[in-house]
Design a protein around this nucleic acid. Structure first.
Lengths: 333, 333
DNA sequence: CCAGCGGATGTTTACGTAAACATTACGAGC
DNA sequence: GCTCGTAATGTTTACGTAAACATCCGCTGG
């Protein structure tokens, strides 16, 4: 900066003013400084800036691997949204979702140049962490439920699951089976609860719950079992990947979709429209979740608020070929 | 730091020594300092550290969206590998792959606290950028070909494509059609070139090339056209998503896979094993690509080398149910 | 018994920037 | 013509850390 100032024949403070776009600098001086900056290839030192300003203009994102479609979409939205606000995004990967790894990420976070953290993770891992988040670091949690302790932005899991069940009941199915996600997952739990509530609310006794682990493979295994229940005409899978495995199992066992069995998923992956048959599913607006995370955390940084609350992002039913009226209804109707 | 020093009854320099794990501090003193740090909730200011040290211990990753499976896997490997080396990873998203956006990312990069950059992007966007990368920032390019100008880590696209074609020829197919990626993509171009070379090398005249845009939807559209060519018994799709669309189109047109048509993909998505039928494909080791990017860039940072070169990561053929011998060969054999 | 040595710790300084304050220059108003 | 106000620019300082150098202390060996 001093070099630039010397070359332009001004003081370093004037260079700083130009560099930050402050007013009170003659157009002529500004041009001279800019020319000097270009000539010397000057780039402001962000470390010194951060030191002086007391903030890094950087957001940390803690997420357990980038393995799921939803997390990635959310992360992407966070990154672009943060860039628009002049913030950078630093990744804090957690290789495996164990307590040790989470603790490690938290302690690394302590040394990291971030003003705030967005956590995309099952909240129980956060709760059980023995290493606490550094004080003065704002937190927003995506995709979880802890509105009383943290600021949360989440998809309306319950609403989406309810819509899925209702869609199938409206088509004339007597009941809806549920292929749930793993027990440890709150998202899975909430979708399962909403499924159960929607059924009992409609006066239907829920059939036994079938569990997978989000993977297509687990959906396939569950599908092989479900194919044997010939009274099962409608299945709500807790995500699209399990639905994919389910479709394959049903096909192998000669159960036609949607003629014999209707299948609905949850997520709306880009590929879901190309499944065999194209999958009816609940669309999640991950981009909106990411955007809201950034908005809300920047508000928190500016205002230093400590209020918590939950923002719900609505889902949308996407109707495709994998759901239809049950054979009985068609024959009878 | 001064507070910690005062509480522990030592100088700030001793605190610094403890904080950085330097030798020359009595165990007793060390414990006292640690206790004081805990009590005051001290966390080192990374801005001041970076300012003093002259390096940020941070890697920037420029990538055009997080839309493709490969980029995401690579990014994930970069993040974990960087963490292992004590480096943080900052994301530089490019919303749309236009020159303007890339230029914007580059100029933002100038103000960013990074020591080096890993570019996961088509190289021609880098070449055509009007804003040059800041001097002193090391660069490694993933998934592209510019070994003469940059350090490159890439999957062995040509080798994988060759293996795909040979696999189908070995099964007895007369020729292999190719569903290529978009024209602008070097990866697509290299796979297409290798496909053509493998065929001509085997004395077979390549059929006309069919083009998609990587999406399942484009694979579906291409598949509808291919289904009409009844002499087409084997298709090599340039990625698994297009292969998925292709499978659906063939199914709709009554062409059985693999009985009538064999299909092989490229990527090995987690879902590909659950396609109908499970997809034979070329597995890419994205994790290895990411790991090598980090290794090589850290070497460059340490040594300040300017040498360029390309590191190729091998692929692996994963045989599943979507490929088999052509009907003619089975009848004849 | 004291010089000399080495390990433990303290003091000074500089990293690059921007806020706060100081200075200069110039024109308007009396 | 002199003062005052304002816009433009310069000077000083502090942000938190760690390298470089300085100091202190106890012990060893002649």
């Amino acid at each position: 900066m001093a070099d630039v100032a010397q070359l332009a024949g001004v003081s370093s403070q004037t260079v700083s003013r130009v560099s930050n776009g402050f007013p009170g600098v003659t157009e002529e001086t500004r041009q001279q400084v800019m020319a000097a900056m270009r000539e010397l290839g000057y780039r402001p030192n962000s470390a010194a800036r951060a030191l002086k300003r007391g903030e890094f203009r950087t957001l940390g994102v803690i997420t357990f691997s980038l393995s799921t479609h939803g997390n990635i979409r959310t992360l992407e939205a966070i990154a672009t949204s943060a860039a628009r606000h002049g913030y950078a995004v630093t990744l804090l990967p957690v290789a495996v979702p164990t307590q040790d790894e989470v603790n490690g990420a938290f302690s690394r976070l302590g040394e990291l140049a971030v003003d705030a953290v967005i956590v995309i993770m099952e909240i129980h891992l956060l709760d059980a962490a023995t290493v606490s988040l550094p004080p003065g670091v704002q937190v927003v949690v995506a995709d979880s439920d802890a509105g009383d302790r943290y600021t949360v932005v989440d998809t309306d899991q319950a609403g989406g699951a309810r819509d899925a069940v209702r869609h199938l009941l409206d088509l004339g199915h007597d009941t809806v089976w549920h292929l749930a996600g793993p027990e440890g997952s709150f998202a899975a739990q909430r979708r399962a609860n909403a499924w159960r509530d929607a059924l009992t609310g409609a006066g239907v006794t829920p059939p036994p719950l079938v569990r997978g682990d989000w993977s297509a493979e687990s959906g396939y295994r569950a599908g092989l079992r479900l194919a044997d229940h010939h009274d099962c005409t409608a299945v709500f899978a807790a995500n699209d990947q399990m639905a994919l495995g389910l479709l394959r199992a049903l096909h192998e066992r000669g159960r036609r979709v949607p003629d014999d069995v209707s299948v609905i998923g949850f997520d709306d992956l880009p590929e879901s429209a190309s499944f065999l048959p194209p999958l009816t599913t609940i669309h999640q607006d991950f981009a909106e979740v990411g955007r809201l995370c950034v908005e809300s955390i920047i508000t928190k940084i500016r205002q230093g608020g400590t209020a918590h609350g939950t923002t719900l992002v609505p889902t949308r039913l996407v109707r495709r070929a994998s759901t239809g009226a049950p054979a009985g209804a068609r024959e009878g109707g």
